[in-house]
Design a protein around this nucleic acid. Sequence first.
DNA 1: CCTTTCATCCGGCTATGACGGATAGCGTTC
DNA 2: GAACGCTATCCGTCATAGCCGGATGAAAGG
Lengths: 252, 252
Amino acid sequence: MTDSVPVKAAKTSFEIIHALRELEGAGVSELADELDKPTSTIHDHLRTLESEEYLVKSDGKYYVGTRFLGIGEQARARQKVYRVARQEVDELADETGGHTNLMIEEHGRGIFLHKSRAPDAVQLDTHAGMRVPLQTTAMGKAILAFRPREEVESIIDRHGLPRVTEKTITDRGELFDELAAIADRGHAYDDEERVKGMRCVAAPITNEDGRAIAAISVSSPKSRLRGEEFREEVPDLILSKANIIEVNLTYS
Amino acid sequence: MTDSVPVKAAKTSFEIIHALRELEGAGVSELADELDKPTSTIHDHLRTLESEEYLVKSDGKYYVGTRFLGIGEQARARQKVYRVARQEVDELADETGGHTNLMIEEHGRGIFLHKSRAPDAVQLDTHAGMRVPLQTTAMGKAILAFRPREEVESIIDRHGLPRVTEKTITDRGELFDELAAIADRGHAYDDEERVKGMRCVAAPITNEDGRAIAAISVSSPKSRLRGEEFREEVPDLILSKANIIEVNLTYS
DNA sequence: CCTTTCATCCGGCTATGACGGATAGCGTTC
DNA sequence: GAACGCTATCCGTCATAGCCGGATGAAAGG
């Protein structure tokens, strides 16, 4: 216990919730094993969380309850950019036939706030609320490219540059070069840096000061997104959508 | 502190989160005031939750973070009925031009799992994750009507029959009469029992044993939903959709 | 510039949460 | 059908950690 938070019990409760998510539901001893704590301690927490209706118990196993849904939904709805961009992102999916996403930064991580999928697009592992290292996605890089350097540095200090696929950027210098190119160009690419076989184009959503507050993207399998389309058409489309969102953010 | 849970600190943390939701973000002393606890205690919890990335601090105020979004999303996605019914509920909105919803029961409360809104439908206060007393909605009543009586009794014992509008059912006997009628008819109505001016038609989703595991509904302003449509057409439509969902639940 | 308000920090007291062990309940196996 | 093994639940103890009052620092407001 090196990193000391004032209320350890709260931390433990959330560790349990997190473990329940990963295990997709679990029993007491399974959790005790996973978290390396006595069953009685785990049981105490589970009982508390269940009686507060944050967990549900079904056939001897505990699961995360839907009470978190309302909390998360509210956290999302407060983001002005979500309310404004949502519809545009949906439209973008229809227009491009791929996946489109909206991402913000929180605690130095990339958060998928919304995703839209055209009817014939492939299945993907992304979901609303998903947290990823910023430099592993086109959206994340687009956000970083429009943030002050010292802020980017401090984010890297905090989270490092974890490798996800063999193409992930893991070198500080390389990342800053890439960010400079993105700032210059105005949009970002991701060529299999997070998911193999997938390509992605992203544009930042900036405020009046030029600071990125979010990003939107289109992603498709490599085979569907190439040449002119990858380099010209889709970027233009995204940039114009990003621009619309920016304008709507200002006047509303 | 009459109701004793084993881990009081966890409960307090969640009380803070809940208060933050209601206040839509707050400072330390505001929360201390609201929850009637010393600022130092509140501060301890806030610090913990913030460092665990469940809250965000912005300009001196604390807000619920988007980390809950992923948790809630996963809790929802685990519900098979959600995965199956989602699309049908969306279609139903297009077909009827109103609001359509999917509700499940959890801890004796009604949980809105999904809602869909036709482009020209009115704005409503419902949102995914919202928790309501079961007897105040058509969906909730549809669920109760297809649950064993003793289960309904124990839910009422736990949560009572809180009044929401002047038309809310608050009498036990009256409720059971209504439930009997619903069980007989196969679908439920709500005529301004939760929101003034709104009407609602709901049908249960039952499993092989005839036990309700969820319900779907269509709601519209009173002026738009009346006569034949309210009594015949919409119910038929909903029932057929419910039936499709039930079949898909069995074979998938 | 002074006042007020609020967040943050600090240190002590004691309630309380972590824990080990005992018990009960359930399913499984022979 | 009985005995075994597993897991959830309960209980009592002890040391800790969470709660709190008060002090400090920072920022806003008059």
